[in-house]
């Protein structure tokens, strides 16, 4: 009878010891997890949720044509009937977010037609056939494109 009691007592001590080790392991796991897993990880998937915000934060360089139209209504009007109507202003004039945020501080630079126009319109066999192309040397003999064509409405 007393032997049985002793045996039971010994077994209980074993179990308590094991439970203690398990508990310590779980506490260590939860603690490590809280330390090592970054904020928001796993909220929407296997990634840091704040990374979405990080990608949103960057500043813009290209303001978009709507921002240009707010001040330059005359150019919008000039392009209306032209084939160039669909082209974004910054396709030719370059990134202008600095200019639209403070027009006095940062000025837009007028592009040079002799370099700008051939980027699209110089003859190239890989260009689609419907697109207007010229052999610059034959077409104007070195004359600047904008001496005949108005860039905002190039049709003659």
């Amino acid at each position: 009878m007393s032997d049985d009691d002793k045996g039971l007592f010994q077994n209980t001590r074993h179990l308590v010891r094991m439970a203690g080790i398990f508990a310590a392991g779980i506490v260590a796991f939860v603690g490590m997890r809280m330390l090592l897993v970054p904020e928001g990880f796993g909220r929407y998937g296997h990634y840091r949720a704040p990374a979405i915000g990080d990608n949103m934060k960057k500043p813009i360089s290209y303001a978009g044509r709507d921002a240009c139209a707010e001040c330059h209504a005359d150019v919008v009007e000039a392009r209306k009937a032209s084939k160039h109507v669909g082209i974004g202003c910054e396709a030719c004039h370059g990134a202008l977010a600095l200019h639209t945020s403070d027009p006095a501080k940062s000025k837009a630079v007028k592009p040079k037609a002799a370099q700008l126009c051939p980027a699209c319109h110089e003859q190239n066999v890989a260009r689609p056939k419907w697109f207007k192309q010229v052999n610059g040397a034959e077409h104007s003999g070195g004359e600047a494109c904008d001496s005949c064509h108005a860039p905002h409405a190039p049709e003659l």
């Binding site: 949103m56 960057k58 813009i60 360089s61 978009g64 044509r65 082209i87 974004g88």
Partner: peptide
């Protein structure tokens, strides 16, 4: 992503002359 989440289009779409 910093543009499209503000209602703008991408820089490449904005500047593509032929759409």
């Amino acid at each position: 992503y910093h543009r499209i989440t503000k209602g703008l289009t991408t820089a490449c779409c904005e500047t593509c002359p032929t759409g």
